[in-house]
Amino acid sequence: MYKNVFGFPIQFDEWNHQGSLPIYINSSYEFRTAYIGDKRCVMLTPTEELVTLPALKKQILKIQQIDNVPVVFALTRISNFRRKSFIENNISFMTEHQIFLPFIGTMLTNEKESQRITGKFVFSTQQLFLYYLYNNKKRLYISETKKVLPFSAMTLSRATNQLEATDLFVIAKDGVKKFIESKYTPYDLFQKIRVYLSNPVRKVGYINKKQVTEDMVFAGETALSEKTMLNPSRVTCYAISAKKIDQTLLCQELIDPNEQVRLELWAYDPKQFIDGHSADDISIVLSFNGRNDERIEEAIDELLERRLQK
């Protein structure tokens, strides 16, 4: 993770004393032996949220009773409050931008406390995530997204920052080229990020079959039945961007299923990531948010497994 500190190379090795630790400590970190210059230490990478300071100090003591060397916490980021607390209590830590290693010296750089996202993504961020997912590459260069997504530079920058705020992505540079990267598999990434994703459907109604246009694609149960073992609904369902239709054309009542189709108006263009004649798989899954139907849930599980666990 880190190549050098103060010019000293860092080398990693296994740390094989986990079996001597209580289970609650063993399961909370990934352990490695680290050699920083000529100093050996134990480096802990948290696998869950850090505990309170008093509990943390007890954990350090238990580790040092087994291996009496400095304990260093390798963190993605650290809040201003916890940084101050660690320094005051002589607890070593490292992030990509800040280092506090009192057993060899101290180096701190300014790092703004990141703002963790607490609500849903804006739809531009949701589209950026979908593009990353469908790109099938671990690393996505921002310059590529500019050619595909209909965003201004400012909108794209905000969407990138919002992805980073989830702690599920790393935003970095390869030379001068900025990129997005996640360490998770597509399936795990979707399960972790799903809480931030929204149902793209803004409004639903019915139109006459003769009013179907080329801007409309299959959606809802129609699309889901094409991709899974779900039996299709009698009424065909389409989706279209809410910006591409006169909403006064919508009828709120299904009068004749032989003459009408169901139409979903989406917050973004369902043709953006089109899959054949249907909207993209993940957006279709999200369009069922709030539906409590066992047969739909089974079909969604089938679709996600096929799409994300390839």
Rank of each mutant, 00 (worst) to 15 (best):
Pro232Trp: 04
Asp215Glu: 10
Asp167Gly: 10
Leu156Cys: 02
Thr155Ile: 11
Glu226Trp: 06
Phe151Gln: 00
Phe218Leu: 04
Ser283Phe: 11
Ser198Cys: 11
Trp266Glu: 11
Met216Pro: 01
Lys209Pro: 00
Arg262Ser: 10
Val201Cys: 09
Leu254Cys: 03
Glu264Tyr: 13
Phe179Gln: 10
Arg202Ala: 12
Glu214Tyr: 04
Leu149Asn: 02
Lys192Gln: 14
Leu230Cys: 01
Leu230Gln: 05
Asp246Ser: 02
Gln162Arg: 14
Ala172Glu: 13
Thr222Asn: 04
Ile245Leu: 06
Leu249Val: 01
Tyr187Arg: 12
Ile282Gln: 07
Gln252Tyr: 10
Glu214Lys: 06
Asp246Cys: 00
Asn208Lys: 06
Phe179Lys: 08
Val212Leu: 03
Asn208Thr: 03
Asp275Trp: 14
Glu221Cys: 01
Val261Pro: 07
Glu259Gly: 00
Cys251Pro: 00
Asn161Glu: 14
Ser278Glu: 08
Thr228Lys: 01
Tyr196Lys: 05
Ile240Asp: 03
Cys237Val: 05
Thr213Pro: 05
Ser225His: 03
Met154Phe: 13
Tyr238His: 02
Val261Asn: 05
Asp281Leu: 12
Gln247Ser: 05
Val195Met: 12
Leu265Met: 08
Phe179His: 14
Arg262Glu: 13
Val176Ile: 14
Ala165Cys: 09
Asp275Val: 07
Tyr196Pro: 10
Ile207Trp: 09
Leu149Glu: 04
Arg234Ser: 00
Val148Gln: 13
Tyr268Pro: 07
Ile245Thr: 04
Lys209Gly: 07
Gly276Tyr: 02
Leu265His: 05
